[in-house]
């Protein structure tokens, strides 16, 4: 068999795909939950970045993984709260406010990296902890499946759990019902006594919560340091992943998985003699194509109904 095909149809490929999907999935859940409440959130880039940075710094200075986790999440939720405050209370355009907060996160993390680590590129001179990987009992001893699904980072498993949490939250809790109501028709929701502003704020805070783990995974799982702008557009890819999936839990999962597969494919293809620049274009072209196809289908459908 062709060596490329062989490496793609291997347990390694599945394993790598899950690794690559993890941060995108966290961010995509964050995007989706805000989208369900009727707002577009392009600040996941900044949210992840700030969590990635704070996690590394706190773990390096306290030596505690739990504190790193808590402060990472708090920082990310704080940034999301800032977005909510500016958008909902101060009436800022949510897109421009999010662009500003992404800039803020990018600037402040490099600024503080220099202050703490005396280097503008990375914090690799600081010793950061990492989230451990986990061997699933029984599964790990099954030949092929064990290699695919066992021994991944705990945050990868948590990402999968988050899909379930997201599902439960949206369909089984009063807050989820309100989020969907506000997203579908804010005026109607308002008329039956739902505090629209508050619900939108909660959905933004939740996006900060989920996004935080994406950031923490990048700096304390994928690698063990923070480097400038290390999110590298994943917060934006997440928007595409969520919108492919219709911003619903299962769809968001598969949307993120699609990007995980394409990105992993790009990594595996890089061993061939194909210019890496061209391969790295693939996920972004795919996004535009998928969005276009999705939209064309939708417009064809709505035309059919007319």
């Amino acid at each position: 068999m062709n060596p490329l095909l062989k490496s793609i149809f291997s347990a390694n490929f599945v394993f790598a795909t899950l690794r690559v999907t993890t941060p995108i999935l966290f961010a995509a859940i964050g995007v989706a939950i805000t989208a369900l409440s009727g707002s577009i959130n392009i600040a996941l880039e900044g949210i992840m970045l700030i969590a990635a940075f704070v996690g590394v710094i706190v773990s390096a200075f306290t030596g505690s993984l739990w504190l790193a986790l808590i402060f990472g999440v708090l920082a990310a939720v704080g940034l999301a709260a800032l977005l909510g405050y500016f958008h909902l209370n101060l009436k800022a355009d949510i897109i421009i406010a999010a662009i500003a907060l992404n800039m803020f996160a990018s600037g402040i993390t490099v600024f503080l990296t220099y202050i703490f680590a005396h280097d503008k590129g990375t914090t690799s001179s600081l010793k950061s902890l990492v989230f451990p990987s986990y061997q699933i009992p029984i599964l790990k001893d099954i030949p092929v499946l064990g290699k695919m699904f066992s021994g991944l980072n705990v945050l990868t498993y948590f990402a999968l759990i988050c899909v379930v949490i997201f599902y439960y939250l949206i369909y089984k809790t009063p807050l989820g019902l309100r989020i969907r109501a506000v997203g579908q028709n804010p005026d109607a929701a308002e008329s039956v006594g739902v505090d629209v502003k508050k619900v939108k704020m909660y959905s933004l805070l939740l996006s900060g919560f989920f996004g935080a783990f994406g950031g923490l995974y990048l700096s304390m799982g994928y690698v063990s340091w923070f480097s400038r702008d290390m999110t590298a557009g994943r917060g934006f890819i997440a928007i595409a992943a969520a919108s492919i999936g219709g911003n619903l839990p299962i769809g968001t999962f598969f949307g993120s998985l699609l990007f995980g597969v394409v990105n992993t494919l790009a990594i595996f293809l890089a061993t061939l003699k194909v210019p890496s620049e061209l391969i790295q274009m693939i996920p972004y072209i795919t996004t535009v194509l998928v969005l276009a196809i999705y939209a064309i289908q939708k417009s064809a459908k709505s035309r059919g109904e007319e």
């Binding site: 500016f86 209370n89 101060l90 009436k91 800022a92 355009d93 421009i96 406010a97 662009i99 500003a100 907060l101 800039m103 803020f104 990018s106 600037g107 402040i108 490099v110 600024f111």
Partner: peptide, 15 residues
């Protein structure tokens, strides 16, 4: 960069 982002936030905040 940080200052720029703060200025934009304030300008775009209509309220």
């Amino acid at each position: 960069t940080v200052i720029e982002s703060i200025i934009i936030l304030l300008i775009t905040a209509e309220a």
